[in-house]
Simulated scan of single mutants.
Amino acid sequence: MEAFLVSTGIVTLAEMGDKTQLLALILAVRFRKPWPIVLGILVATLANHALAGAVGTWVTTVLGPDVLRWVLGASFIAMAVWMLIPDKMDDEGETGQPPRLGVFGTTLVAFFLAEMGDKTQIATVMLAAQYHAYVWVVAGTTLGMMLANAPVVWLGERMTRRVPIRLVHLISAGIFAVLGGLTLLGWG
């Protein structure tokens, strides 16, 4: 249960102001069809985080416990630093044409690709390696993504104006730094 709760909390915080949250806002404003967008986010996140969790689980079979502890500790600290760098969404050309894959398909592909190498995907790898609880980590990180992105789809810009993104990034950076320090000290 700890793996689930920590994974949910970390990813929810890490996702605030992330490029995929900005992507959710762009899709919501462009298509104005929240259900297929939210479903696309869910399926893309499950697929992406299942893959990331599998990589995290595999890493534990390749690295010894001492090396794994140092790699994970350093990775959590690196993630803390990365959290302090705000994400920006690249402007893509707007063609005005309806999406070829439909709203669900467009969201699915866009979210899956946007998550590749993203903070939350890397966090999922690290958490799966840390907790040895693949299902709970993937379930928690997926729930965290949904908690951060689904409200953006429905509430859109109103929500992003009220949430102090910088404060959320500082808190999540602090959590990652504490996890990194505790891991390096051999706690947990």
Score class of each variant (00 low, 15 high):
Asp91Ser: 12
Thr141Tyr: 00
Phe112Leu: 14
Gly64Met: 10
Thr141Cys: 05
Thr141Arg: 01
Lys119Ala: 03
Val71Glu: 03
Val59Tyr: 08
Val38Thr: 08
Ser172His: 01
Leu155His: 00
Gly117Leu: 08
Arg166Leu: 06
Gly102Gln: 11
Gly93Val: 15
Ala133Phe: 06
Asp91Phe: 06
Val135Tyr: 09
Leu155Ala: 04
Asn149Gly: 03
Val71Gln: 03
Leu108Arg: 15
Trp35Ala: 09
Thr142Gln: 01
Ile171Met: 10
Val138Asp: 04
Arg161Lys: 13
Asp18Arg: 00
Ser172Arg: 02
Val163Asn: 05
Glu15Leu: 02
His169Ala: 12
Val59Met: 15
Val152Thr: 10
Tyr134Met: 11
Met159Asn: 00
Phe176Lys: 07
Leu167Phe: 08
Asp66Thr: 14
Val6His: 02
Val55Met: 13
Thr106Leu: 10
Glu94Trp: 09
Phe176Leu: 10
Phe111Asn: 08
Gly93Ile: 14
Gly53Ile: 10
Ile26Phe: 15
Gly186Tyr: 11
Phe4Asn: 08
Leu68Gln: 11
Leu182Trp: 14
Thr8Gly: 00
Thr61Leu: 09
Gly156Phe: 05
Leu25His: 05
Leu5Val: 10
Phe111Pro: 02
Trp154Ala: 02
Leu5Phe: 13
Arg69Phe: 04
Glu157Gln: 10
Leu155Arg: 00
Val59Gln: 08
Phe4Lys: 08
Phe112Tyr: 13
Gly9His: 00
Glu2Leu: 15
Trp58Val: 15
Leu72Ala: 07
Asp91Pro: 01
Glu157Pro: 00
Trp187Arg: 14
Thr20Asp: 01
Met79Tyr: 04
Val29Asn: 12
Met83Ile: 00
Thr45Cys: 06
Gln130His: 14
Gly186Arg: 10
Met16Phe: 08
Gly93Leu: 14
Thr61Ser: 15
Gln130Glu: 15
Val59Cys: 10
Val168Phe: 12
Val153Asp: 06
Asp118Cys: 04
Val67Phe: 09
Leu39Ile: 13
Ile41Val: 15
Ala52Gln: 07
Val81Glu: 07
Gly96Arg: 07
Leu63Ala: 14
His132Leu: 13
Leu63Met: 15
Thr183Phe: 10
Ile77His: 02
Glu2Ser: 06
Ser172Ile: 12
Arg69Pro: 11
Ala148Glu: 02
Val55Ala: 14
Val109Phe: 11
Val109Pro: 03
Ala44Phe: 06
Pro99Ile: 12
Thr183Ser: 15
Val135Cys: 01
Ala14Val: 02
Ala28Lys: 06
Gly181Phe: 12
Thr124Pro: 14
Ala110Pro: 02
Thr57Glu: 11
Thr60His: 09
Met116Asn: 03
Pro99Glu: 11
Val81Phe: 12
Thr120Leu: 00
Ser172Gly: 10
Thr60Pro: 06
Leu108Ser: 13
Lys19Leu: 04
Val109Ala: 14
Trp82Leu: 12
Ile77Thr: 02
Ala47Ile: 13
Gln97Trp: 08
Lys19Gly: 01
Ala14Asp: 05
